[in-house]
Simulated scan of single mutants.
Amino acid sequence: MKLSELPRRTAATVESVDDQVPNDTIARRLRELGFVAGERVEVMAAGPIAAEPLLVQVGYTRFALRRTEAARVRVRLEPPA
């Protein structure tokens, strides 16, 4: 599942960040920000126009991401506690 498809307030774990082109600067930057395999991620809110940007929490840090950027992050749902 892509991060852009994740329902709000649903916990997931990052599996990978997809590179769209060789040496993809956006994918590299996402990994630098903490979107790495095994990290917990959650979509906290979405903007008012076309549900963009997405407010995403990775670890304890929140970021605003465009849907196209969030679509590069592959996640898997966490099992219910």
Score class of each variant (00 low, 15 high):
K2W: 09
L55M: 05
I49W: 03
A27C: 00
L30Q: 04
V41E: 04
A70M: 05
V75R: 06
P80Y: 06
V41P: 05
E39H: 12
R66Y: 09
A71P: 03
T10F: 01
R74W: 01
L54M: 14
A45S: 15
S4T: 06
V73G: 08
L77N: 07
R74P: 01
V21I: 14
A11Q: 10
V58S: 03
V73E: 09
L77M: 06
A64E: 12
V43C: 10
E69F: 02
V43R: 11
V58W: 05
Q57I: 02
T10G: 05
L54V: 08
E15F: 08
V73W: 07
R62H: 14
K2E: 13
V21R: 01
E52Y: 01
L6T: 08
G38K: 08
R66V: 04
R74L: 10
T61V: 10
G47C: 11
G34T: 07
A37K: 13
S4R: 12
R76V: 07
R67A: 15
A11V: 09
P48K: 14
Y60K: 15
L6A: 08
Q20V: 09
R67V: 09
T13P: 06
R74T: 09
E52C: 08
G47W: 14
E52F: 01
D24T: 00
D24M: 05
R8I: 13
A11S: 13
R67M: 11
I49L: 09
L55V: 01
A46Y: 09
V58N: 04
G47F: 13
T61I: 11
S4E: 11
M1K: 15
A51G: 13
V21F: 03
Q20K: 09
N23A: 10
T13R: 14
R72C: 01
R31A: 03
A11D: 13
I26E: 02
T61K: 11
V73M: 12
P53S: 04
D24Q: 03
L30T: 00
V56K: 07
A37L: 08
V17F: 02
R31H: 04
Q57V: 07
P79D: 15
N23V: 02
P79A: 14
R74C: 02
F63G: 04
K2G: 05
T10H: 04
A51H: 15
Q57M: 07
T13Y: 12
T25Y: 00
R66D: 10
V73Y: 07
A70N: 02
S16F: 05
L3N: 04
V21Q: 02
